[in-house]
């Protein structure tokens, strides 16, 4: 009997945690390069989910009508929309506020989330959408739990993104330049690093990662809706990033998995009728615990 309440949440936790990790890596990327907490990150994912759904099913909004393009084209569109939204955010909100206190930028990103949520409600009302898995079917069964291809894809993509970014920051000149700008913007500029380019690069990349999470996760978790990213992903992703000390890509990666496990174990082992919202409480406890006991995160240094 123990296997049922442990194996299912662990597998679900790994998969969901991979999704949180993807968004968390985007948060870490932005924090490392511009020291900004991006509260619009969840909506990067929601917009990606909406774009991929609408492009793959075809839509007719205002004066634009797009035919049915299929799931893969939809996925590309979702990532592209996420990236575009990230770039727009950088150009029109973050850059004009670059010399202001970071809390001001935080409030501005929260305002972006509001606008994005409102636009999503216009696009999709308050309905829930089910988007199709890129690859359907399940390859194998583990302890009575059947794994979906989509779930394996999510984990694989997270590993790929994590390793890719670790290499980017660790071994490329551009990655080094990105780290340098966050620590000493003026000196970096004098060394010939274009700050605006770096800022655009990281926000665009974070947007694309968010869009990717929005494309990959909803088929696994069930559905998406307006404000999906902010309600379902953002807090978990931030907690994951904090577990990584806000600056560590592998830390955010591990943090995401950990938060996914904690949420799902809390969900399946606590009676919802007597104690509703156990996953949210568990995340709050983890968040406060890390911030008070070990603010540098689990891995403890910038990497």
């Amino acid at each position: 009997m123990l296997g049922v309440t442990l194996v299912t949440p662990i597998i679900l936790g790994l998969v969901q945690g991979a999704g949180f990790g993807l968004v968390a890596i985007g948060l870490v990327l932005i924090y490392k390069s511009t020291r900004v907490f991006n509260f619009a990150a969840g909506e990067f994912a929601t917009l990606g989910a909406f774009a991929s759904y609408h492009f793959s099913h075809g839509f007719n909004i205002l004066f634009i009508s797009i035919p049915k393009l299929g799931l893969w084209a939809g996925a590309v569109a979702g990532i592209a929309v996420g990236a575009a939204f990230g770039l727009l955010t950088e150009r029109f909100v973050v850059r004009p506020l670059s010399n202001r206190p970071k809390v001001t930028v935080l409030v501005a990103t929260a305002a972006i989330a509001t606008t994005a949520i409102a636009l999503e409600i216009v696009l999709g009302a308050t309905k829930s959408f089910r988007s199709g898995a890129l690859v359907s079917g399940h390859p194998f069964v583990l302890q009575g739990v059947s794994l979906l291809w989509q779930e394996l894809i999510v984990i694989f993509v997270l590993v790929l993104a994590g390793v890719g970014l670790a290499i980017f920051f660790g071994y490329t000149d551009l990655g080094l330049a990105t780290l340098a700008t966050s620590q000493e913007p003026t000196a970096s500029r004098l060394m010939g690093i274009r700050l605006n380019r770096i800022s655009m690069l990281t926000w665009g990349l974070a947007g694309a990662l968010g869009g990717l999470a929005g494309v990959l996760l909803p088929p696994v978790t069930g559905s998406f809706f307006a404000a999906y990213g902010t309600t379902d992903l953002l807090i978990a992703a931030f907690t994951a990033a904090v577990l990584g000390g806000m600056t560590s890509v592998p830390g955010a990666f591990l943090g995401g998995i950990l938060v996914g496990l904690v949420q799902n174990l809390a969900l399946s082992n606590v009676d919802q009728n007597h104690f509703p919202g156990a996953p949210a409480v568990a995340v709050l406890v983890v968040l406060i615990g890390v911030l008070v006991v070990r603010p540098t995160g689990i891995l403890g240094r910038e990497a």
Partner: peptide
Amino acid sequence: GLYFALVTLAWGAVSEQCI
């Protein structure tokens, strides 16, 4: 500072989903 904003965000979620 910024980290406290995260705590308030999580507190809001706890209130919505639990309290």
